[in-house]
Simulated assay, not measured.
Amino acid sequence: MKADSRSADEGLALDVLIVGAGPAGLTAGMYLARYRRRVRIVHDGSSRALWVPRSRNIPGFPEGIAGPDLIARMSDHAVRYGAEIVESRVEEIACGQNDEGFSTRLADGATIDARGLILATGVDTNLAELDSGDHNVAVRNGVLRYCPICDGFEHSDERIAVLGSDLHGAAEAMFLRQYSRDVTLIPKWQVALTDRQRGELAASGVDVLEGRVLRLDATEATMFVTIEGEAEPRRFDTLYPAFGSTPRSELAAMLGPLIDPKGCIPFGAFSDGLLPGVYAAGDVIEGLDQISVAIGQGAMAATRLHNWLREQDGHVMADQK
């Protein structure tokens, strides 16, 4: 298909560059391709969805679907409609000459110019370090988990441990209490909770251990936690490290003061945008980190950006603006 049949713009080679090929970026790419936009998705192969062993809370997959299978399906879906997917790393991004579009530089030195931009760069999960047992195998076996919303249901009535010393860990332990009567909050170093917070946990039936964790040992079906001062390791069916995650928002920061002190992109970035022609979607923005949420935000960001491009090209009724 000729390029000029897909956009009125005769300048930049791409209508939209999407950074990130997780659920948000791939959804946005599929939508934009179906809007007959010239779209390229650039990713570095590190989508967090790729190491999800099986997700059972994505609508339409009651038996669950493995993260790599979902990403493969979504990639194929986007490519079928004309999206281009390239594996590389975007190192730098800036507004184009005369503030026309955006220019990016890849790790190999290549550059990409586009009229619009969607950042779907995701987050890096802060991982636990095991003293024995393979981390990825432990995740696959379900003895090590990172998302109570995603898979707390699968651990109903099990012995659950939450590793985390602060309010974030306490909140996660209380959330998991909905699934099991046997939930224990374990500090990595020392408990950093107020007396009131301890009282809330006790009232909810969450046990709080005081000793420092010395070892984490994963077997096929069990996580053993060795606590300072205790003769024998404690045995749990699954362990949730409550260490949080780090937003991959460096590219947004290159465009201006668009992120909050914690590095998150504001929640409205998928609907209201960050700058003219710039949107974001998925886990990198503030809010609920879920695949279904990222899919919805990707669709919204793609549609808002498509309509913004239509305005630039004079393809919108004046009374609609």
Rank of each mutant, 00 (worst) to 15 (best):
Ser46Trp: 06
Val39Pro: 12
Arg38Gln: 11
Arg40Ile: 15
Met30Ser: 13
Arg36Tyr: 15
Tyr35Cys: 13
Ala28Leu: 05
Arg48Ile: 14
Arg40Val: 15
Leu32Ala: 11
Ile41Pro: 12
Arg37Pro: 10
Pro23Asp: 00
Arg34Ala: 11
Arg36Asn: 14
Asp44Pro: 07
Leu26Pro: 07
His43Ser: 14
Ser46Cys: 10
Arg34Cys: 13
Gly25Thr: 06
Leu50Glu: 08
Pro23Lys: 00
Ile41Gln: 05
Ala33Tyr: 03
Leu32Thr: 04
Thr27Ser: 11
His43Gln: 04
Arg34His: 08
Thr27Gly: 06
Ile41His: 02
Val39Arg: 04
Leu50Val: 05
Pro23His: 01
Arg37Asp: 03
Gly22Asn: 06
Tyr35Leu: 11
Arg37His: 05
Gly45Asp: 01
Leu26Ser: 05
Arg34Glu: 10
Leu50Ser: 11
Ile41Phe: 06
Met30Ile: 15
Gly29Val: 09
Arg34Met: 12
Pro23Thr: 00
Pro23Ala: 08
Ala28Glu: 01
Leu26Trp: 03
Leu26Val: 04
Gly22Glu: 03
Ser47Lys: 01
His43Ile: 08
Pro23Glu: 00
Arg36Val: 13
Leu50Met: 12
Ala24Gly: 08
Arg40Lys: 14
Tyr31Ile: 12
Asp44Cys: 12
Arg38Cys: 09
Gly20Asn: 06
Asp44Trp: 00
Ala33Asp: 07
Tyr35Asn: 10
Gly29Asp: 06
Thr27Lys: 03
Leu50Asp: 12
Pro23Val: 02
Ala28Trp: 01
Ala33Val: 09
Leu32Asn: 02
Tyr31Asn: 09
Tyr31Glu: 05
Pro23Phe: 00
Arg37Met: 12
Gly20Thr: 06
Ile41Gly: 10
Gly22Phe: 02
Gly25Ile: 06
Leu26Asp: 06
Ala24Arg: 03
Ala28Gly: 09
Tyr35Pro: 04
Arg48Met: 12
Val39Tyr: 05
Asp44Val: 07
Arg37Cys: 13
Ser47Val: 08
Met30Phe: 15
Ser46Met: 14
Asp44Met: 10
Arg40Met: 15
Ala21Phe: 05
Ser47Pro: 07
Leu50Gln: 10
Val42Glu: 08
Val39Gln: 04
Gly25His: 03
Ser47Gly: 15
Gly20Phe: 02
Ala49Asn: 05
Val42Ala: 06
Gly45Leu: 04
Pro23Tyr: 01
Leu50Thr: 06
Pro23Arg: 00
Ser47Leu: 07
Ile41Lys: 01
Gly29Thr: 07
Ile41Val: 15
Gly20Glu: 07
Val42His: 07
Arg40Ser: 13
His43Asn: 12
Ala28Asn: 02
Gly22His: 01
Tyr31Arg: 04
Tyr35Ala: 15
Arg38Glu: 09
Thr27Leu: 08
Ile41Cys: 10
Arg40Asn: 11
Arg37Lys: 14
Leu32His: 01
Arg48Gly: 15
Gly25Lys: 00
Ala49Leu: 10
Arg34Gln: 07
Ala49Ser: 14
Arg37Phe: 09
Ala21Ser: 13
Arg48Ser: 14
Ser47Asp: 06
Tyr35His: 14
Val42Lys: 00
Asp44Thr: 06
Ala21Trp: 03
His43Pro: 11
Gly20Arg: 00
